[in-house]
Nucleic acid binder design. Sequence first.
DNA 1: AAAAAATTCAACCGCCATGTC
DNA 2: TGACATGGCGGTTGAATTTTT
Length: 340
Amino acid sequence: MARSPSRNEIGRKKGPWTPEEDQKLIDYIQKHGHGSWMALPSHAGLNRCGKSCRLRWNNYLRPDIKRGKFSDDEEQLIINLHSVLGNKWSKIATRLPGRTDNEIKNFWNTHLTKKLLQKGIDPVTHRPRTDYHLEQLLAANLPQLLAAARLSNLISPSFENALSFPSSATQLAKIQLLHTLMRANNLNSNPTLGLQALNLLGSTHNNLNSQPEGLANGIIGSFSPNPPQMNPNFPNIGDPRPPNAYQPTNSQPTLLSNDIISTNAHLLDTSYLINKTSSSLPSLVDLSLPNHSDVHQVIMASKINTSDISNVSSASNAFDALVEFMDDEASNFNWNDVLK
DNA sequence: AAAAAATTCAACCGCCATGTC
DNA sequence: TGACATGGCGGTTGAATTTTT
């Protein structure tokens, strides 16, 4: 049931405050204090409800309000406090002099959540989103992995094209598709693809090494002569190697021999990685559903509405059906123009 | 240059806790 | 003790602004 406005709210002005209204409010409060907020508007000559006046004063007109960008220290403090207090904006605001709860809340929602996500940290739990690192790793190597997969006849060129088409799905959906594909085909069971994929991962060593944290560090680190240093900021990722699997080697990461592959084969097993890195997080694909056919897994991962492909009848298998669907979808986006 | 999309943030809304009678 | 008023809080909205196409 909608709340009916109280008597003194009826007919009151809403919306942005004018400079004149601001001045009236400032003048009155400087002279008399705010007293009863409900009584203030009539005393101050404002056609606003008391609640609106309180909000305007507390969030904007109060003389002790600090303006401008949040400093790095303030930003870190907000993150730290949020990790302890959650969305208790008013409590957080008491620790940041001159900042209002509304301002902190807005800053959190517009900047800090994105920043944390970019770092692979879940802004709700403040724990690493380990799936994120896997997604990033796959995203960074998507074209090469797709090419490797195609060489090994794991996927058809049209399916690869469908995955590569930039507007046909979100990047995450594409990665999830590849992820599903990798799960379904278990890369390390295919030596050719395994070698290529491992080399691809190894060749990103320098690139990924500049990122101090995450799954990539764990994978690539195990190829280097020294045991990897796990980042303390990501304690729940841990060392992705199984017990006793580490063999010190002087090989360069870009030149991987078969014995290194066999030593590290588990690193290409996505289910191993998922289990190792995502114990507290849902995997990209819901594995709890029993006996999914490939098409169900792929559809689920791609977030494509099943009704959208229900009329695909000519395809002989699940992947072809999906390719057909994605080709149809692509035609709506001038697919050929984009791919030329 | 213009249109569309994305982002920002001031302000609002509804709910809850507390105070008062 | 219960009804009502008030203040405070967190979630959400939407106009204004900025960025992208």
